[in-house]
Simulated scan of single mutants.
Amino acid sequence: MLLADDGPLLGASPQDPISLSYPWVVSTRDGFIIWYGSTVAWDAGNGEMLHVFNRATSSDGMVWAREGQAVTHSLGDAQAFSRPTVLRRDSGEWDMWFSYRAAPGRSYRIGHAASRDGCDWTLDLVGAVIDVFETGWDSQMTCYPFVFDHDGKRYMLYNGNGYGRTGFGLAVLDG
């Protein structure tokens, strides 16, 4: 494998002070967009970490311009984001699915955000997601979505209870 140099592609910075994770890269006609997780604080004042999604762009895939937080978090509602999947609609609008936690003691859920331009995102925690079920392997937690299109349909692979302790499932998304 060929590496560009000995350092990370995106490393710690004042904007990304603790850790970076979960990169999702999309190729555009102007280059690349990356959305990635950034741990801002281990405790946001309510006992839960603040882990957000940031956005950066690059014309060549090697030099990246950090653009800041992509999806606005909501303390106590959605503040520990992880594992984004970003897809562009035929209309040019964007969808993002991800895991989030709200507060200590609450397990991961799958959230959604939509954007007209891939920059400004509107958080939607109920509209385009899978919630926990009353019983079964995903009755306590849904997390780590991976969304893809195949044969004219949109699918989501996701983990259930215990971060996928018993495996992962497949859902067909409506719409």
Rank of each mutant, 00 (worst) to 15 (best):
A171H: 13
I34L: 09
L125Y: 00
G105L: 06
D138R: 06
R55C: 04
G169N: 08
D5V: 02
G160H: 00
W64L: 01
I110Y: 09
A4Q: 06
S13G: 14
S107L: 11
C143R: 03
S21T: 13
P84T: 15
P145I: 06
S74I: 09
Y22A: 13
D60Q: 08
N46V: 05
L123N: 08
Y155W: 15
G11A: 15
W64S: 00
N161K: 02
G175C: 04
I18C: 11
I110T: 02
L125N: 06
I130A: 02
R106Y: 02
L170A: 07
Q79Y: 01
I34K: 01
R66S: 07
G152M: 13
V26P: 08
D30E: 13
S38A: 10
G111N: 07
L87Q: 14
V25P: 05
R116D: 10
W97A: 02
Q140P: 00
F81R: 02
I130L: 05
Y144S: 15
G169D: 09
G167Q: 01
T135E: 02
P23C: 05
M96N: 13
D131R: 07
V129D: 01
G118A: 09
G160K: 01
H51V: 03
W97Q: 05
H150M: 09
T166W: 00
R154D: 10
F146I: 14
R83G: 07
L3T: 13
Y100R: 08
W94L: 09
S19W: 10
S99Y: 11
F53Y: 03
F168P: 02
R29T: 11
A113L: 10
S19L: 15
D117F: 11
Y158D: 02
D5H: 12
G160C: 02
R88K: 15
L3V: 14
Q69W: 00
P145R: 10
D120S: 13
A80G: 03
D5Y: 04
V40E: 11
H150E: 10
F146A: 15
Y163H: 06
Y163E: 01
Y22V: 12
Q140D: 06
G68A: 11
L87W: 12
R66G: 00
R55L: 02
T85Y: 03
S99E: 12
V147S: 09
E48F: 07
N46S: 08
G31I: 09
S21G: 11
H51C: 00
K153T: 10
Y155T: 04
N161A: 01
F32Y: 15
E48R: 01
